[in-house]
Design a binder for these strands. Structure first.
Lengths: 110, 110
DNA sequence: CTGATCTACAACCATTTGGTTGTACAATAG
DNA sequence: CTATTGTACAACCAAATGGTTGTAGATCAG
């Protein structure tokens, strides 16, 4: 085992980041436009600190970036993480289609 | 808020299920071939019960199905869950491309 | 300068997660 | 029948997660 430890923990973080509805919503919003952390915090029925933590999780997963502007912190969507997650699911799809193809072949031969 | 609670918890489970390297490996394997629960358990440096729990998590997320055959339980990949996760990431990709398109338009006009 | 605002972070708490061992039971093998 | 195998599940544990409040430092407004 221990195939590619770095990549694996990276994927752990990515999918973990997606595994929360609030974080998915944040990703959607900051992809479309720009938000400050407190701008985001205003959208959800939870404390500022909670939202701040969610943003930190997304940042660690390379799904958003933060950029300081004065006393504010601008949160933006980051394509990098999204692409990586998508690529993995694409692989799985490909594996699935191969399998379905093999079964079709077997049925065709039988 | 509270957009579509059912779908949201479904997605929570899906991405949570993907957020573990062992579970991702199980999904890959059972998509290619068939495994019993103990067949899978033999592959990893952890107890049978631990692997059994991982399979249960994947089952709840609609990423695998189990079918009893004698005293064995056959685990197979389930396309349903995979498709749902993939569809969401596709949406996000689409949003991203729209945004990039808008920016390109603005630059073209400017 | 002073006060309000934005952010960061620590400390705390309840719940979930990912693992363990042990027990129980059904199905198969001898 | 008996022993073994495959599975399920409960109980337990340490660590992580998702939330809270409180404190403190920067930056901005007046």
């Amino acid at each position: 085992m221990v195939v590619d430890q770095l990549r694996e923990t990276e994927l752990d973080r990515l999918f973990q980041a997606f595994a929360d509805a609030t974080r998915r919503d944040i990703v959607r919003r900051v992809t479309v436009g720009e938000y400050t952390v407190s701008g985001l915090a205003g959208l959800y029925a939870m404390s500022f600190a909670a939202v701040q933590k969610h943003v930190a999780v997304l940042e660690r997963a390379s799904l958003v970036t933060k950029e300081k502007r004065g006393r504010e912190q601008i949160v933006r969507g980051n394509h990098e993480g999204l692409q990586k997650a998508r690529r993995l699911l694409d692989e799985y799809e490909a594996i699935w289609r191969q399998r379905v193809g093999r079964i079709a072949d077997i049925l065709a031969e039988g």
